[in-house]
Design a protein around this nucleic acid. Structure first.
Lengths: 408, 408
DNA sequence: CCAAATAGTTTATGCTCTGAACTATAAGGA
DNA sequence: TCCTTATAGTTCAGAGCATAAACTATTTGG
């Protein structure tokens, strides 16, 4: 648990160990083996039996249950040198989960197959700051309904969903404790309205954590830090291929590691946090854009900044260089507390990577005593769909780790 | 040993979920409920049944097995208002585990009952630096043998043990990757020689981690950082009442969080690490003891430093104050990555607490935005027995979490 | 001394995995 | 073509474990 917060679907397990717990665990075990195969090399019952140590009889019975619950389908035959060919199994391509994201300037909804591929998605630009929780959720649920109908038309069944929000989520996954950029505080969105008829519910998660989770599927490393550059700097920590959220969901907040003890005050109440140097606003100000008209919009600000960097503007270059230096410092310190071995940059930090990288790598190497080869600092390939995919991924894990909840 | 919230009865399953896994898990579950009771309020089978949700029949059968394996004994009767009194259960007071510690200037061995109390212990002053692994282990095993005989004379049966070493242990718990203060590198001590005839083996662990584990039993908080002040500064991180070691055992190394980007080089290869300011050597040097004859011994250095502080020596006071400031800074940053809520000071940092505390609390508050009330920064009460108790505690957990390994 | 309450055990039953026998299907060789 | 060999998957009896309900044991209180 490493720590790891208990996922909500584990709560269905009562305190005592019934026999059924074994069944549930084995259902998830078998489903996991089916899920981790590529279309190229799908597995048969016999292979799963060999892989898990369960007898062929048990696997047959478990697979039967997974098929009848709709999660798994039989595809083709799998001929091994000689003998009767095995029946290839795969995750049902017609079952999916929904991923959704609320951000400052858009709402995004997508459908992700059980295998994790994004089947369809729609982003609606929209300034969400002036509206309260109810109005935003109403707009989002309307958008979800449209997407769900579109999915149904293609014969796709949506089992559950995940919602990513740029704010702090409580341990129970029900309350948005605070989302400063949205102006939310202790908001309790009604998640069921997003997917009224689905067999599973909708899980709520932090946007940086979701993005980190999505990044994991495109990443071989098992322990890494995802740094999400937004207005501030968010972090998502993955330890042993599991999201590490800590007891209260605050884990991995690299944006508030102190990089300059005598630096400026931070919105969090601290001082000299990384965010005060490497947040998008902080970089823009340091680059001399403080009074610039583009500052009203995030994307505008970023493009103006990029323009200056390409022109070779000294002030912009030095602002970004300093951000890189401090980011390296904060990451090196963080890696002593939770020893991750890779870093993935997202948001504006991904965009600014070409100008950040040298100073980032310099300080990261210097302060971590050379633990991070340059190849271990990566740029996110997912861009703006990261949070969406991650939120869906969380719902996906729910299905894959607790398939018994879909029993008929 | 990454923490995970797996349901208790799934633990220890080597891949597949056999039926026996349920039995194993429930044995541990019941044993845990017996272990967590105080002598004042011991539990009966009926109470455990109510607590766990297992039926009385199951609990009876499980308890029978625990009794026949020698881990549990029936004590007295437990009268509830009316009806037949329950039979009180407790951990067998005649079963124990051994705790051992190798440090720079002593060897320590102790016997700890299943309930966690230190029954006997012996510390032998001895400079271990000049000797290699084999010689030190030979001396330690001789000391263990003496202690084991003494325990046997009192009718106490030693089931297993733990060994704490001031160095980095590999993930498998077999190799001391490096113990700079002992001069060990990739040492592979033969652990079996410490307890040749015991039913369980001996586990190896890091000294700061062991001390953190021991501290946990005297602490209500579930998430805290133990800071061990030695020549350098070690850290042990406890998350959700579990030791958090990370994939490679490096987790919680607060001593190498960067507190001064332009500070001096650290032995670890980094720069400006907390250790270069708050390690015992660093404080002594900053206090002006660089050439002092007492510097040859750790305890001497510390007592000279204490003398200076009590005299009000300005240089010593400012050295310690700066250490406190930097410690607060490093802890505030660390708490953003893994959100612990308390801090326990050990080693020289515990001794220097009166002179450290003000600057420590000031910077901790400043940089953590007031997350740490003063009462959440504690001084270790265990002193030098911490590592011993923690090593034994690790062996104890082994017994308590896998009681089936002691089946007859 | 008996009723009510609580503790613990016995017994019949059901669930889930296992192991071995059995059926199904294919490749390769005579 | 047909038989042997190899592999996949199913069936069925049996063992282990937890459950529920009935039963025994022991105490308080009237």
């Amino acid at each position: 648990m490493v720590m790891t917060a208990t996922p909500p679907y584990i709560q269905g397990v009562p305190g005592a160990g019934h026999m059924e717990a074994v069944r549930r665990g084995n259902l998830a075990l078998v489903l996991g083996r089916i899920a981790e195969t590529s279309p190229a090399g799908r597995r048969s019952r016999a292979q799963i039996s060999a892989l898990t140590g369960l007898t062929k009889a048990s696997v047959s019975s478990l697979v039967l249950e997974l098929i009848s619950s709709g999660l798994v389908t039989e595809v083709g035959l799998n001929q091994q040198s000689r003998g009767r060919p095995g029946v290839e199994l795969e995750l049902n391509p017609n079952k999916a989960v929904l991923g959704a994201e609320i951000n400052v300037d858009y709402l995004a909804v997508g459908v992700v197959s059980l295998a994790g591929t994004l089947l369809m998605h729609e982003v609606r630009e929209r300034d969400n700051r002036p509206h309260g929780v109810e109005r935003v959720m109403a707009a989002l649920s309307q958008q979800c309904a449209v997407t769900a109908v579109a999915a149904e038309k293609e014969g796709i069944d949506v089992l559950g969903g995940g919602l990513a929000v740029p704010g702090l989520i409580d341990a129970a996954g029900q309350v948005v404790v605070s989302a400063p950029n949205l102006g939310w505080k202790n908001a309790r969105p009604d998640l069921r309205v997003l997917l009224p008829g689905s067999p599973l519910g909708v899980v709520l998660c932090n946007e940086a954590n979701a993005a980190a989770l999505a990044e994991m599927d495109h990443q071989s490393d098992t322990d890494f830090m995802f740094v999400s550059g937004e207005v501030g700097v968010g972090g998502g920590l993955v330890v042993g291929r599991e999201l590490f959220t800590g007891a209260d969901g605050h884990a991995g907040e690299v944006g508030h590691v102190v990089v300059d003890p005598y630096g400026s005050d931070c919105l969090c109440g601290g001082r000299g946090c990384l965010e005060t140097v490497a947040g998008q606003d902080a970089i823009a100000d340091a680059a001399g854009l403080a009074g610039h008209p583009a500052r009203s919009s995030r994307s505008l600000t970023l493009s103006v900044l990029l323009g200056l960097l390409k022109e070779g503007d000294a002030r912009a270059l030095s602002a970004v260089e300093r951000a890189g230096f401090c980011l390296g410092l904060a990451l090196a310190s963080s890696a002593r507390i939770v020893p991750f071995t890779s870093v993935v940059l997202g948001g504006h930090l991904a965009v600014l990577d070409p100008w950040l990288r040298i100073s980032l790598m310099d300080s990261l190497q210097r302060y971590s005593a050379g633990r991070f080869p340059s190849g271990n600092v990566l740029v996110s390939a997912l861009g703006s769909t990261g949070a969406l995919l991650g939120a869906a991924g969380l719902a996906l894990r729910w299905v894959l780790e607790a398939p018994h909840t879909l029993r008929r």
